[in-house]
Structure formats: C-alpha cells, structure tokens
Nucleic acid binder design. Structure first.
Lengths: 322, 322
DNA sequence: CTGAAAGCGCTTACAG
DNA sequence: CTGAAAGCGCTTACAG
C-alpha cells in the first residue's frame, strides 16, 4: 500500500489536518510541528495522492488539445508551445488527434463533462452540436463558433491580399487560388474573400478551387486545378500540405518556378522540417499557441476574455516568387 | 452545482448504490428500477464525475509520453500512434516535450508517484536517477535502462550494416558515419558498432563523428565533419534532422549526390513533411508506438512483458545512392 | 496553532 | 434485486 496522509499523521503524532497544512505550506503551523511532519513525510516517503486532491478541489489541471492530426508541422509546433505555456500555469495537456472524425470532438466534450479535463482548445474544423459546446470552457484557433467561444487567429484577409498583390506587381497576369475549405465557420474563409476582392480590383478572372477536402485528397485536387487552370502564372496556396503537394506537381509538369509560375503559400515554411524554400505567409504559431492557452485558462476560471484575438503574420520571401 | 449520483438517487427514489450499478451496467438490477434510474439520469442530465471514480479505482487511465520535442517528424508520428493505440485501451495520453531538460524526466516520475498518470513511455535520452524509475510503470524506445524497463527498438545493427554495405557495393571507397550520441545506454549505439565492424571488415579508415549534441548543434557538427573528412564518398547519417542538415550542407559545398557522394540515413524519410528523397533505413514507427503502449499497459497491470522487443526496419531506396 | 469531523462523488462489500 | 454504510485520500470550516 502507498502511504497516505493518515500514516504520516500517526507517525508524526498529529492530526491529518495538520499534515495537510504543512503539505500545502500554510503559515499557520508551529515550527516544531512542521518539522515533525516533514520528517515523518520523508521517513515514510510520502507523496500526495493528487486524485484525492483534485476531487476535493474539483479541478483536474488538465486541458485537452484537439488537432486534426499531430503528425503535421503546423499542429506539432502548435502542440509544442501549447504544452509549454500550459505548463507555466501548472496544467498538463492531453493530446487528441481528431483524424477528421467528428466523434473525437464529441469525446472531448464528454471528457469535460466527466471532469477528466478542465477545458479544451479546438483546432479542428468539423461539425458538432453547438449547445453542449457553449457550456464548456473551450477556445479555438481560427474557428468562429459563436459568441461564447473565444479564439485567436491571424490577419488572414490582409496577409492574403498582400501576397496576391506581391505576385501581381511582379508580373503575374493570371492569378489562382487553391485551398481546403473548412467545414465550419472559420477565419480561414477570409483568404478566399481577399482573393475575390483582389481579382475584382485588378479585373482579373477567377481561377479558384476551394473545396472541402479529406486528408489525402490533395493530389487529386491539385492535379485538377493545374489542368483546369493550366495558364495561371501565379498561385496562392492555402496551407502547408497543399503547398508541398502543389509545388511538387508543378515541377513535375515542367513549370518553371518562379519564372513561369509564382507561388505564395499560407504556412509554407517549416525550415526544420523540409528543404523547401517557399515565399509564404508565416503565422505566429508560438504566440497563437500561448495566447490560446491563456484564453482557455481565463475561461476555466470564469474570467473575462476577449472574443477575438488577431495576431500578425509575416510575409517571408523565398525562391518561389520573382 | 453539477448533478451527482445522490441527486439521481433521490429523483428516482432509489439508493445511490443502485444508481451506481446501472451506471456501470451491472446485470443485477431489476428492469423497472433500471428504467427509473435511466430516466432520472436523463432528466437531470447526469454525467459521472470521473475524478471520484478514478479515486475509488485508484487508476487515472492516463499515460504520459515523454519525447525530446514533439515538433519533429519522428516524434510527432510516434505521438500520433501512441495516442491512437492508448485510446483503444481507454487511456488518454499526456504529452511532454522534455526540451532536453532533465527536470522534465523527473517531473514525469513525480506525476506517477502523485497518481496523476498511471505510467509513462520515455523516448528521451537524458540522465535520471535509476532508483525511482524502477518502481514506476515505465517503458521506453531504444533506451536500455536496466532489467526493469521494457523497451522496443529496431534492428539498428543489422540495418546499419546493410546500409553501409549497399554504398560500398556501389563504389564507395571512403565511408563516413555521423551521428548524435545518446547520453544514456541506448540501442542507437549499435549503429556505431555496426559502422566500426564494417570498416574493419573492409579494411577502411574510420571517418566518424558521433558526439553528444544539443538541439541546434547540427550545423556546426556537420560542417566540421565535411571539412575534416572532405574526401568521403559515402556517408551514413544517423537521424532525421541531422540528415536534412547534412544534405543541405553537402549540396552547398558543391558535392554531387549521389555521383560524388552517397548518403544513407536512419530515419531520413518523412514524405509528408519534406520534399527530400533520401535512401534511408525506415523505422516501423507505427508498430513501435503500438507495441510500446501495449507493453506499458501490461506493466501497469503487473502483467509479464518481454524486456526487449526488436522490430524490423525497411531499407528504402531514394535518390541519394547510386 | 491544532485536532476531530464532515464532505468531495463515487464504488463495493454486507445484509436483507 | 436493493439500500445503508463504509471508505478511497484528501481539504476545510469549526471549535478550542
């Protein structure tokens, strides 16, 4: 059997309340008593059973992080900083890859209701039932759920606009857009809006594929795009995976990059992970992660939070633009 | 207040024990009573407080996964499958990036002792105090702790030998080895042993750098290696990050790959993450992850486990060998 | 400053 | 089949 607070109390010849007080470092305890208790703890090699502690306190000190798939540079980096920031507040993080299965989202809600975690950050783009969500401490990235779910996002609209204009200024005459459309309301949709606005402004034709995609669909979608819009000389690719696939496919088709075809991607740069060198809009992943954790912890403690937090991207030049 | 088992019992006009029995789907409960309780649960929107459940059962149903850094293709992929496999057994996984800080390892031990997690899988290569470890349900990948810590690994020795011979058969006359040396006993050391054996067998000179490295040291180490052994025409690179850095550096130095310099790496292939196309020894990450989880769960339940599990790698041809 | 007791929300022998 | 009670290991008013 593991040694409990009772054993310590008996050994030290005091009450369990007293032991609890020294464990929790409360001031109201005599020097001698404290010493006795400390010795007993050491002698018995005591360590607190935090299951009991958590039950009393009614907090798990755990949050869940729900990503589409952890095995992806964007989400892995996010997870890294989420864990780091949560740790600063004494929280652990449970990792869940939704694998595009809706049940996984529901599972998290259940975990919250069952008091297995205190809250969750949702980085997924699937369906769900609004009603339950609003009762739970949940925050999100990019996704706009409703008034009760704070989220952090990046300046999707402005950044996309800037990226498109950059290619146009460098000679692109026919500019395309390819993206994976989220299933739910998301700030990511702003990228499409920016594209449409820029095309209107420059009086250019729309060459866009922005579809709901399953993981793995990228190749087909890219191939379709490149066939349908064979004459584009500038493309905005929304998302890391898509941009890698797109780049490869374009090369294979013999397109000269950037002379014949310029590319800018949203999230195209993960130097650590790949040898690609794309011009891209880089999201402030670290800051997004840290901020989303701070929001969640506030939410858990019923503090006020702002509903929408926008962080700035960076436009990073690479070898895929002129 | 959240509704408890007591509320349900009162509402249904039964004892709490009975409610508990229907929650846990025990057979010994009358049909009518069961129905009454089920209705009460629904009416009150009851969901069990698992903190209390866990305290009673003395199990957290959580395991910890300790990796050097989650933001890395190998560990991210591992994490993905660890989570998936753990889920099959009803376990959640807490993610911890050690960030090369020893305290993080100790932290996990503490979490186990404090009953915050039931056990842990260690994929790190740092120091620790043996004594505590042996009391805890811990399993590992590659690392050999001692008789009490089961681990899974791959056929490091054979695979390395095969890779080296492959280059030699294709004309390599001067073959090097570059790796990041683990701080602790690890099967990864077998790769060095294989290299030394092969060099002896072919009577070739040793061109090896196998040092303890910090994250970020790779560039310097690679540069040193390429300067010191400027005339190697075949190199075995141990590890993903190192192989990416090595490849880039070699290219920059004007080395023609594979004509002038062949490369084989251990863990060089992560198609999802990069556009590289290396010849490499591919570890069965999914199977390693699943197996290590199974081992841990057995350990948690005090079942017998084998101490060492070796899984086979695959030798995958890419563009970096002749 | 300290002890005895109640209680967090469950499960599980023990009777009946 | 079912209820009353004890207990999991803590914390926290309440007295003193």
């Amino acid at each position: 059997m593991e040694t409990t607070i009772k054993d310590v109390a008996k050994y030290a010849g005091v009450g369990v309340g007293t032991v609890s007080r020294v464990i929790n470092n409360e001031k109201a305890v005599g020097e001698k008593t404290r010493k006795k208790v400390l010795e007993a703890m050491k002698a018995l090699n005591y360590s607190r059973n935090n299951m009991a502690f958590k039950l009393r306190k009614n907090e798990t000190r755990i949050i869940a992080l729900l990503v589409p798939i952890i095995n992806h540079p964007f989400f892995a980096k996010l997870a890294y900083y989420v864990e780091d920031e949560a740790g600063k507040f004494g929280y652990s993080v449970i990792l869940v890859s939704s694998q595009q299965r809706v049940e996984k989202e529901t599972e998290i809600i259940t975990k919250i209701m069952h008091r297995e975690v205190d809250g969750a950050v949702f980085v997924t783009h699937y369906m769900h039932e609004e009603e339950d969500l609003n009762k739970c401490p949940i925050v999100s990235i990019d996704r706009t759920f409703g008034d009760n779910i704070p989220y952090v996002t990046s300046d999707n609209y402005d950044a996309t606009k800037k990226a498109l204009k950059y290619m146009i200024e460098r000679g692109a005459k026919r500019v395309g857009f390819i993206g994976s459309k989220p299933l739910v309301n998301s700030e990511v949709l702003e990228r499409e809006r920016a594209y449409l606005d820029v095309m209107a402004e420059y009086n250019m034709p729309i060459c866009m594929v922005n579809e709901v995609m399953q993981h793995g669909d990228e190749k087909v979608v890219v191939a379709d795009f490149l066939e349908k819009y064979a004459d584009v000389d500038g493309v905005f690719v929304s998302g890391y995976t898509l941009s890698q696939v797109f780049y490869e496919a374009a090369i294979k088709l013999g397109r000269k990059i950037p002379d014949d075809l310029q590319i800018v991607s949203y999230d195209g740069i993960f130097k650590q992970w790949s040898m690609s060198n794309m011009t891209s809009v880089e999201q402030p992943i670290e800051e997004m992660a840290r901020e989303v954790v701070r929001l969640l912890i506030k939410k858990i403690h019923n503090e006020e939070t702002s509903q929408r937090t926008v962080l700035n991207t960076q436009f990073v030049l690479g070898a895929t633009t002129k």
